[in-house]
Write a protein that binds this DNA or RNA. Structure first.
Lengths: 240, 240, 240, 240
DNA sequence: CATGAATGAGCTTTCATTCAT
DNA sequence: CATGAATGAAAGCTCATTCAT
């Protein structure tokens, strides 16, 4: 990683807010398209496999610009990581949950997570790359902490509500529940190729996806509910 | 991948069984140490990051030998994949379960899977690499099918036994259960670096590992048990 | 080197002498700090090793300004050469010698040269760079001749005086004497690193420097004096 | 600089002496031609200016071979430095001096040094490059000490002999004398381009060279002789 | 069987320079 | 005047692979 770490934040001399000129907008666009391309390329080929040239070409820019805006390939990778986390948190923040209905809300969370992972395979792929490199880059990111999962907080609120309504067991932590949900979604998405090969079926088929989500829903609910839910699950809520 | 240069299986598979000469044993040793080194290096650096030179050096051999024994870097990768699957299956085969005691057996399976993933991080890392490359290599492996998970069969027997004893629900498939168990173990191991960073705790600490296993045990059991188990879970077994 | 982009001499050389405006003074300052930075950077890294970016950064300015004021990197290098020569001549001009006392004056010249080289290592380093490039740039400099050594003239006067006083041999040319003096000072400074390594001593230690100067003084004096000076040398002067 | 520092010494497993095979000889030739080319290219363009490609091409080989044999560009530079020192020492060792005739021997040494520098401009140029880089590489060379100047020892013997014969002053050290001789030869050669420009004459003209040598001879002799030599110098010897 | 030597494509990065406000 | 953005060539170095004993 470059020692100057001169990642350029694109203009914005942080002086008085003024309308960005045409050049600044173009620069912003260049930077963003490089970042977008980096996410795609790194996700498909990993940190080593994704060359700066591939990224630059995908962004219809030049290698040199990566160094201009991000300093180095590794710093670009860090920026890509930060960006996918940012996007995930943004999506999570749009989740509209009703704390008064903890079972439905929990189902919504499970759906959200599984759905997000499936629709954003780069998120999963980039995290895998980062873990291959033992978390080396995320440790260097100053913003890493900012993005530290609000999901746990959300689940905590749900759990509390469920417990107070006598629906949920009091001895399940939000952290564990979060990991369980993430695990079911992540593993299915991350390992879909090897799993498909070894199970002899296509895990990306819509029915397979739907089936897995309903199974995950049930596993999660059974883990937290005081009483096991009937097959459909809806009844359990009604029973309250 | 060159398809002409067939991976050499070390000396004579043909011909009558005879004691291997010193030459053959040495060759066997070279091949094996290359394979072992490849697993380590690929696990640590991925398919692209792990260069043939690194592997050859780690095996105290020469680049050339990789081509001699395996044909190409990619074929070596395939061999590495096959080898880790073989090892996993071998370990799984050593699992000694009592079908008459399905709850305990299921706990044993969960323990085995989580423990194996943790003790063999190369297994997880290599699978991640293979999935990054969209299962390209495992599809080419002739032996892949052979290694196709006996675990599902094992779980199937357990489930049947549990159902017949009135302990387990009849509507849980072995395949789903297998994925659930694998997911809890795999995700925790695979993502331990990013998770540690974002949760602000060390997932590799012994207490953390133990805690996660007992949580996973409970989640799995609650998913299959007709009646929810008491906190400890042991009582549920006793109740039978 | 682009010959169309003429090096800018900062604002108006033409036109009637008038007080420079604030704009011009700022420009002058930018130009000068670039030049100063260039001398430092070229001296430390050579013509190839010293990048325009390094120079611009060292001057807290921008790459672009180098092209604005100097036309190209090579022209900046020429300007740097001219500047160090200018400085050297300026310092030389401040030498206040008494032609009536040729021995002491000669000692003063030796001291001046050795001292100047030591205190201005960029002078020596830049000349080395220029000689590495076979004098390519100095040949292109129009001002080069202007700076052509007044030192020879100075020595010539001294020698004449010494000869007429019967102290100096009549058959020593100022040019040769100049080269001898410069050689002793230049070589010691220029090669201090390799010499220190091979002699196993630190040539930059104050005692080493002092010792070398007194040796150089003696060698120079013995070369020109009719009679060899006594060890101290002071006596020889007194003897006159 | 590579951390493995795997500079290959070309085969020679230091086992029993056997005739080198045709391949080993070819390898030796490749290595040597790369080294020779490196000396030429580094001398002409410096460490930064001399690219590995230029060197490889000059040696009719490939960039890759430089890394194969020397590990890195910098290690090749170190090897080049060692080689020119080795050559210089070798030449010096061929000097056949008669200690009984110190004046003539001293003249022979002066001639040798000036002549060697002139005929081997790469020696001077490479040392300049190394000094530009503050002796960074020679410090890393293990062999550096081996090549540490035997010249001083040679001069010491000469001085002792001269002193015992009453010809030389007893208070001149071999080290100082060596520096004086080297300085006259080195400076003239190293700075011939800028000096030619500023003196307005060609320092490489045969007469100029000859004139400088005889001046250097005289300066050196006058520095060590008890009595100043007559213009020709030969008489001084005859006087003994 | 084993191994040193060779090869060319590709990698990340830095360079000097020009463009467009 | 000053400056951020862009550009293409070239740098040092590593890669997977093949050749020749």
């Amino acid at each position: 990683m470059s020692n100057s770490t001169a990642a350029r934040a694109v203009a914005s001399r942080s002086g008085p807010r003024r309308k960005p000129g045409v050049r600044e907008r173009a620069a912003q666009a260049t930077r963003e398209s490089l970042l977008r391309a980096a996410i795609k390329v790194f996700a498909r080929h990993g940190l080593h496999g994704g060359s700066v040239e591939k990224i630059a070409k995908a962004a219809r820019s030049y290698d040199r610009m990566i160094y201009y805006y991000f300093g180095s390939k590794e710093e670009l990778f860090v920026a890509a990581l930060e960006e996918i986390y940012r996007r995930f948190n943004e999506a999570e923040a749009r989740l509209d949950l009703d704390p008064a209905r903890p079972v439905e809300s929990l189902r919504a969370v499970v759906h959200f997570v599984l759905d997000y992972y499936r629709r954003n395979p780069e998120f999963v792929a980039l995290l895998n790359s980062e873990n291959l490199h033992r978390g080396r880059h995320i440790g260097k990111s100053l913003r890493a902490r900012e993005y530290s999962s609000p999901a746990v907080g959300i689940l905590d609120a749900l759990l509390r509500s469920g417990v107070s309504q006598g629906l949920f067991r009091p001895d399940v932590s939000a952290r564990d529940l979060y990991l369980l949900i993430a695990a079911t979604g992540y593993f299915y998405q991350s390992n879909r190729f090897t799993l498909s090969a070894f199970l002899g079926e296509d895990l990306e088929a819509p029915e397979a996806i739907e089936h897995w989500e309903s199974f995950a829903q049930e596993a999660v609910l059974r883990t937290v509910l005081v009483a096991a839910p009937p097959p459909d699950g809806a009844a359990a809520v009604a029973a309250v």
